[in-house]
Design a protein around this nucleic acid. Structure first.
Length: 458
RNA sequence: GGCGACGUGGCCGAGUGGUUUAGGCAGGGGCCUGCAAAGCCCCGUACGUGGGUUCGAUUCCCACCGUCGCCUCCA
């Protein structure tokens, strides 16, 4: 059974499920006001890997991830570009899914949009007001965090200590600087909805509470996201659920930062921070490999060099598939019949993944297994090679990594060069054969000699 | 000020109280090959500094140095 780190307790503990055999997870999605960046790429990959591993383990997973389509930044961008908020959201949501597809991230089972849940948010805020844990000011409705038991649990700090660090805002109507907006009163020219407590729009922390509980029910299994969401976003979501007296996420998971040049990634740091940009320049699988190579809670360093490094690593994966004519299993991979596979390797993989997703070691195991498959093939042990190779591809697939064998069709000129080279080699005219090989290489091909003659690939 | 993470061989990046090693990339040597490529084998003998615990610490404890993060919108 999977052992998973829980942000709330700070400990690795058994991932117990509300309903046996079923997993419900809610992962905080993007605010669609700009291109996705590397941090988005990491969290989607991390939770995609978790999701796939749960599926691999035979569990039925319901994966919900929202799209925030009403927010200050969206409004700002729409105003700056003189177009509607909806147009901004439409553009960047499309970019989002393009990037997700390029990364091989599975689409969520549901992608609730905040604006479709405003009625439920209004109802929830009304309840919080009735319960006396929320209060109205001239510019909206705020949650009184002082009344929420255990506020600060996710941050790992008591309320008093958080208060000491909080910057004093000039907002003198708030009872505590940590109180946050559930509802922002309408301003001229901004999108707004009607509500008993005044026309306005929801605060950011409200949507995820409503949508997760609506779609997954009380006490759903896992709530996850990037480390920066831990506080205040998730703290504040949790505070609302606690204030309502409703059981919320049973388990919290957060992934570590993406670092660039030793510092937390920020948008001002050049072109490599845009995921869209990265995916135009590199194989989408390379970023997944990079993400798998470090533990999900540790920071990762992303530079052009580490991406290139990862791309080269992919060649080993593709190489074994090519050499043994193996196909990656159909994704998502479910561990079923072990016939033709190496049970011991699978068991080791499962025990590594069950231990809080030790993907770095699991990946090491995959590479090890590839080496063993190659050794077996070198020794003419074709059954052994096929078994080990298929196992390696199965496990890579369980983490969402697919081996690719290029089947690019060859143009007539390339075909002719290959035929000519094989003829020259057969005639032992090696000078000519080498010249023809150079010609192929200069056309961008990687040339290898095989039992069946010259083979080329990109 | 409060809370926390991290410092591993050329680079990235795991892990562990002591017996044989992560893994990838790069580098050196070898096998294979007409020569290559791919593949396989071998190699470099690493754990920030100073103490402490211990028969023994990279791994535990303390201090220090350094790096980074959160406490504010952020994946």
């Amino acid at each position: 059974m999977l052992q998973l780190h829980d942000t709330l307790t700070g400990e690795v503990a058994e991932f117990k499920l509300r309903d046996p055999g079923k997993v419900s997870m809610y992962i905080c999605g993007p605010t669609v006001y700009d291109l996705p960046h590397l941090g988005h790429g990491r969290f989607t990959l991390v939770f995609d890997v978790l999701r796939r591993y749960l599926i691999f383990s035979g569990l039925a997973v319901t994966y919900v991830s929202n799209i925030t389509d009403i927010d200050d930044k969206i409004i700002q961008r729409a105003a700056a570009e003189s177009r509607s908020e909806a147009a901004v959201c439409e553009e960047y949501e499309a970019k989002w899914w393009e990037a997700m597809d390029a990364l091989g991230v599975m689409r969520p089972d549901a992608t609730p949009h905040a604006t479709a849940f405003v009625d439920d948010m209004v109802a929830m805020i009304s309840q919080l007001l009735e319960r006396g844990v929320a209060y109205q000011t001239s510019d909206g409705v705020y949650l009184d965090v002082g009344q929420v038991e255990g506020y600060g649990a996710l941050a790992g700090q008591p309320l008093a200590s958080l208060k000491a660090g909080a910057r004093i805002e000039e907002h003198d109507e708030k009872r505590s600087p940590l109180d946050f907006a559930l509802w922002k009163a309408a301003k001229p020219g901004e999108p707004s909805w009607a509500a008993p407590f005044g026309e306005g729009r929801p605060g950011w922390h409200t949507e995820c509470v409503v949508m997760s509980l609506d779609l997954l029910g009380e006490g759903f299994d896992l709530h996850g996201g990037g480390l920066d969401l831990k506080f205040p976003h998730h703290e504040n979501e949790r505070a609302q659920a606690v204030a309502l007296g409703r059981p919320f996420a049973a388990h919290w998971a957060h992934n570590g930062w993406v670092m660039v040049e030793g510092e937390k990634m920020s948008k001002s740091l050049g072109n490599f921070t845009s995921l869209t940009d990265l995916l135009e320049k590199s194989d989408g699988r390379a970023y997944r490999l990079l993400v798998l190579r470090s533990h999900y809670r540790a920071p990762i360093e992303v530079t052009p060099d580490t991406i290139i490094d990862a791309e080269r690593g992919l060649e080993r994966l593709d190489g074994i598939a090519r050499r043994l004519s193996l196909k990656s299993p159909v994704m998502p991979v479910v561990l079923g019949d072990r016939a033709g596979l190496d049970g011991e390797v699978i068991d080791r993989f499962v025990s590594l993944m069950d231990n809080d997703l030790q993907t770095p070691q699991a990946l090491g195991l995959v590479f090890d297994t590839i080496s063993r498959a190659n050794s077996a093939a070198d020794a003419q042990d074709l059954d052994g090679a096929a078994r080990l190779g298929a196992t390696a591809l199965l496990l890579a697939g369980a983490m969402g990594l697919e081996a690719r064998v290029e089947t690019s069709s060859l143009d007539a000129e390339t075909q002719a060069l290959i035929v000519a080279r094989d003829e020259a080699r057969a005639a032992k005219d090696f000078a000519q054969a080498d010249a023809l090989r150079d010609a192929l290489i200069s056309r961008g091909w990687v040339v290898e000699d095989t039992a069946s003659g010259t083979a080329v690939r990109r």
